Simulated scan of single mutants.
Amino acid sequence: MNSDSGRPPVPLWLLASPFGLSFVALMFKSPIARKAMFLPIVGAVIRITAIGLSPGDYATACALALQVFKMCDFLVLTDAHLELRLVGQTAPSAGSLPLFERAKWVMRLLASPRLIGWTSEPKNGSIPPRPTETSRIRFAIKQIMYLALHLLTVNILGITLRLSPGFSQHGPGLAGSGWGRRSVDALQYYGVVWTWLTISHRVWVLMLLSTGRWMPSDFPPMFASLGNAYTLRRFWGQTHQQMLRRATTSHGSFVSDKLLRLPRHGRLSRCIQLYVAFFISGAVHHWGDYMIMPLNGPGLRASGSMQFFLLQAVAIHCEDIMISAGRRMGWSFDLKPTWRRTASRIVGCVYVWQWFTWCLPIGMDPLVRFGMIENGVQVQIIQEACKFFGKGCHFST
Rank of each mutant, 00 (worst) to 15 (best):
298 P>F: 05
224 A>Q: 14
47 R>M: 13
304 G>A: 03
383 Q>C: 03
188 Q>L: 15
338 T>F: 13
287 W>C: 02
365 D>A: 01
222 M>H: 10
290 Y>A: 11
245 R>L: 11
303 S>D: 03
304 G>S: 00
341 R>W: 01
385 A>G: 11
298 P>R: 06
90 T>N: 10
122 P>I: 13
121 E>V: 06
98 P>K: 08
208 L>N: 11
259 L>S: 07
78 T>N: 14
335 L>M: 09
250 S>N: 12
262 L>F: 10
38 F>H: 11
116 I>M: 02
230 Y>W: 13
84 L>I: 15
184 V>G: 11
336 K>Y: 11
124 N>M: 05
347 V>M: 10
44 A>S: 15
185 D>R: 02
280 I>H: 01
347 V>E: 03
7 R>T: 15
196 W>Y: 12
293 M>D: 05
345 R>T: 04
325 A>T: 09
262 L>R: 10
304 G>C: 02
6 G>T: 04
289 D>R: 00
311 L>A: 14
131 P>V: 03
38 F>Y: 14
61 A>T: 04
182 R>W: 09
171 G>E: 02
389 F>E: 03
341 R>N: 11
309 F>T: 01
272 I>N: 07
218 D>G: 04
54 S>Y: 08
242 Q>M: 12
311 L>M: 13
23 F>N: 12
298 P>C: 07
315 A>E: 05
120 S>Y: 08
169 Q>H: 05
